[in-house]
């Protein structure tokens, strides 16, 4: 049977955070879209396709950020048997998969005019595709068991094994020859992107992060409700 670390405290916290995170997401998305589409210049080489970057790069960051958070939660779930940590990973997975899909599709739409190809099997693209399959595999695995706790445990192990892919994605553009350009924002010597392009990029990144916070809190709520339903049905059947 599921015992909650403190679902009541979580519900209070979620109720306090949700209106702010949802409101800030909307505001930042509107401001970010304004900068991305209107108030930033076209690139001198790439023209207006550079505007794809303001979706593609934040989505790529989120795909790694969400997975890393899920893996940390998986470790907490396995070590301390913290049930909310298990539920967090389960709640976050579809959002992470969504960001990874956005990253892959927009990357393809950007590659077609700029590289002359929709897809290449190079290190960066392939490792991100593997990340996408890790998300899908985790989601399938968690739901493949009759006992939800066994599903969670199996899923958590998969998340921890799959974390090896995160540094591979990050450094793939340095370790191998790839069509994909190297990092231009997350660099030791500071970003090399010009300020008029860095502004929309960072605003969109914060907006995507707040979107993730909002949706994950709502999904966690839905997961807790599902667990309660399950518990009630089990106790009713056992009486």
């Amino acid at each position: 049977m599921h015992r909650f670390a403190n679902p009541a405290r979580f519900q209070r916290l979620a109720t306090a955070i949700l209106p702010w995170s949802a409101g800030a997401t909307v505001v930042l998305l509107v401001v970010g879209l304004y900068f991305s589409l209107f108030a930033s210049p076209p690139d001198y080489q790439q023209g207006d396709t550079v505007r794809i970057m303001y979706i593609h790069v934040p989505a790529a960051w989120m795909s790694l950020f969400v997975y890393t958070n899920m893996a940390i939660a998986a470790a907490c779930g396995l070590v301390w048997k913290h049930p909310l940590a298990d539920l967090f990973a389960k709640a976050a997975a579809p959002v992470g998969a969504g960001f990874t899909a956005i990253c892959l599709i927009t990357g393809s739409l950007w590659g077609a005019p700029m590289w002359g190809t929709w897809w290449v099997w190079d290190a960066r693209l392939t490792s991100v595709l593997i990340l996408f399959f890790l998300y899908l595999g985790y989601m399938a695995l968690v739901n493949a068991f009759d006992d939800p706790q066994r599903g969670m445990r199996a899923g958590n192990v998969l998340l921890l094994v799959g974390i090896v892919n995160v540094p591979i994605i990050k450094f793939s553009v340095e370790w191998w020859n790839t069509l994909h350009q190297p990092a231009s924002v997350m660099r030791m010597d500071g970003p090399t992107v010009a300020a008029p392009m860095l502004v929309p990029l960072l605003i969109m990144a914060v907006a995507f992060t707040l979107y993730f916070v909002t949706v994950v809190l709502l999904r966690l709520r839905a997961e807790i409700v599902q667990r309660r339903i399950q518990t009630m049905r089990l106790t009713q059947a056992a009486e």
Partner: peptide, 24 residues
């Protein structure tokens, strides 16, 4: 027209909007 790249820029924003709104 997005400088001639409308066929690539708008679908990118469209797909992102579709996935994010759909998930929500």
């Amino acid at each position: 027209a997005m400088g001639g790249y409308a066929a690539f820029v708008w679908p990118s924003y469209g797909v992102a909007a579709l996935i994010m709104v759909g998930l929500l």
